[in-house]
Amino acid sequence: MSSAILLVGFCTFVYIGFPGFYPLAMLGGMFWSIGNSMAIPVISRLGMALGILIWNTTNCLTGWAGGRFGLFGMKANPPESSILNYFGLSLVLVGGFLFSRIRGGKAEEEPAEGKRITLHLHDAENEKLSATPEQSDDEVLNRTTKVDGAEVRQEMGARGRGVGILLALISGCFYGLTDSLYPTDGMSYIFSHYFGIFVTGTALFVGYSIFKKNKPTINNAITLPAFGGGLLWAIAQSSFFIANDNLSQAVTFPIITTLPGCVAALWSIFYFKEIQGKRNFILMAIAVSITLT
């Protein structure tokens, strides 16, 4: 993914006439890569819709505050109508709170607290996990097991959900800091920013490979989808920089950081079917309506 991002960055660098390299802009790329490295742990605990919606809400608030009040060394650029801006931001935050109340899966599939649990991990292998008198249910549920040669982390209950929400909040802050570093002429910073992403992504992967003793878990089937995702993200991020140049971050952040979450919600409902049940559908509809407003 970071290779595709770097490719788009280099093409942009050539197109705008080699504006120069800005080492400090690599810091923004580093922030984004660190935040993005939390994506899979977040989504595995919360689901795609809820994870993206929470970190985008945090991203929105961080970036909005930077542009509105001149934080992080930026020049304050308040919008023309502060009343409308505050009102819109408040709706985004209310929508984000409602999204956080949505629970993935069917309510009847959630185990009752204190109840002994048996997990059927893989029917073909007929593997089971159950709690022994010496082990709590949390210890059993969080045990790392092997299924078809891949590690599967069983994360269930309030603890795993709490960790997922915390990681989503942290990654959202990193995303917000990423886009707050380039208040004007963002296109000139694109290549340096994307190069920071590539370097940090490479460092994270090398560190992971060392930790796994040169046996990293890699799914070959996602190679091209990851490259395509990198192209899409890089084009969208470049558009983000252009939007910031022509409007202000206090205007662009609430728009750009909330629409992806609404799109992810549709994927989560209609394709992945992570969100089910009448209560969840009603909450989702209200949250999306408030966010779009």
Rank of each mutant, 00 (worst) to 15 (best):
residue 172 G to A: 03
residue 21 F to E: 07
residue 272 F to D: 09
residue 71 L to V: 02
residue 162 G to M: 14
residue 235 I to F: 12
residue 116 R to C: 03
residue 75 K to W: 12
residue 229 G to Y: 10
residue 123 D to Q: 12
residue 186 G to E: 03
residue 63 G to F: 06
residue 243 A to P: 00
residue 119 L to M: 08
residue 190 I to T: 15
residue 161 R to M: 06
residue 282 I to V: 15
residue 104 G to T: 13
residue 234 A to Q: 06
residue 212 K to Q: 12
residue 91 L to I: 03
residue 292 L to V: 10
residue 73 G to I: 04
residue 285 A to I: 13
residue 204 L to P: 04
residue 127 E to D: 15
residue 285 A to T: 15
residue 279 R to E: 14
residue 16 I to Y: 14
residue 37 S to D: 08
residue 110 E to M: 09
residue 88 G to P: 03
residue 103 R to K: 12
residue 48 M to G: 06
residue 65 A to T: 13
residue 282 I to M: 08
residue 133 P to S: 13
residue 133 P to H: 15
residue 221 A to P: 02
residue 123 D to E: 12
residue 49 A to H: 07
residue 148 D to G: 06
residue 7 L to D: 03
residue 13 F to L: 00
residue 245 D to C: 02
residue 193 H to T: 14
residue 221 A to W: 13
residue 257 T to L: 01
residue 114 G to V: 07
residue 176 G to C: 01
residue 110 E to Q: 14
residue 54 I to K: 02
residue 100 S to W: 09
residue 251 V to K: 02
residue 22 Y to L: 04
residue 253 F to A: 10
residue 90 S to L: 05
residue 177 L to A: 06
residue 216 P to K: 02
residue 65 A to Q: 09
residue 108 E to A: 00
residue 127 E to N: 14
residue 246 N to G: 05
residue 291 T to R: 11
residue 26 M to S: 02
residue 8 V to Q: 03
residue 76 A to W: 10
residue 101 R to H: 09
residue 187 M to R: 12
residue 24 L to M: 11
residue 273 K to G: 02
residue 287 A to E: 07
residue 70 G to T: 04
residue 105 G to M: 06
residue 194 Y to H: 10
residue 84 L to A: 10
residue 53 L to R: 14
residue 260 P to T: 04
residue 111 P to H: 11
residue 35 G to K: 03
residue 57 T to F: 05
residue 241 F to Y: 14
residue 279 R to M: 09
residue 118 T to F: 11
residue 142 N to W: 15
residue 236 A to T: 14
residue 244 N to Y: 10
residue 248 S to P: 03
residue 66 G to K: 09
residue 81 S to V: 01
residue 52 I to H: 04
residue 190 I to C: 03
residue 272 F to L: 15
residue 80 E to I: 09
residue 120 H to F: 13
residue 102 I to D: 03
residue 195 F to S: 09
residue 93 L to E: 04
residue 106 K to Y: 14
residue 75 K to I: 13
residue 274 E to Y: 07
residue 117 I to C: 00
residue 42 V to P: 00
residue 217 T to Q: 15
residue 93 L to A: 01
residue 203 A to N: 04
residue 147 V to N: 07
residue 127 E to I: 11
residue 234 A to H: 05
residue 28 G to H: 05
residue 207 G to P: 06
residue 183 P to R: 07
residue 197 I to Q: 15
residue 273 K to S: 05
residue 128 K to Q: 12
residue 133 P to C: 05
residue 35 G to A: 03
residue 58 T to M: 12
residue 19 P to H: 08
residue 272 F to H: 09
residue 4 A to I: 06
residue 49 A to V: 07
residue 260 P to E: 01
residue 230 G to D: 06
residue 154 Q to D: 12
residue 185 D to E: 11
residue 201 G to R: 02
residue 36 N to Y: 09
residue 23 P to S: 02
residue 161 R to D: 08
residue 233 W to Y: 11
residue 162 G to N: 14
residue 103 R to C: 01
residue 124 A to V: 08
residue 214 N to S: 13
residue 241 F to D: 00
residue 105 G to E: 13
residue 217 T to P: 05
residue 88 G to I: 02
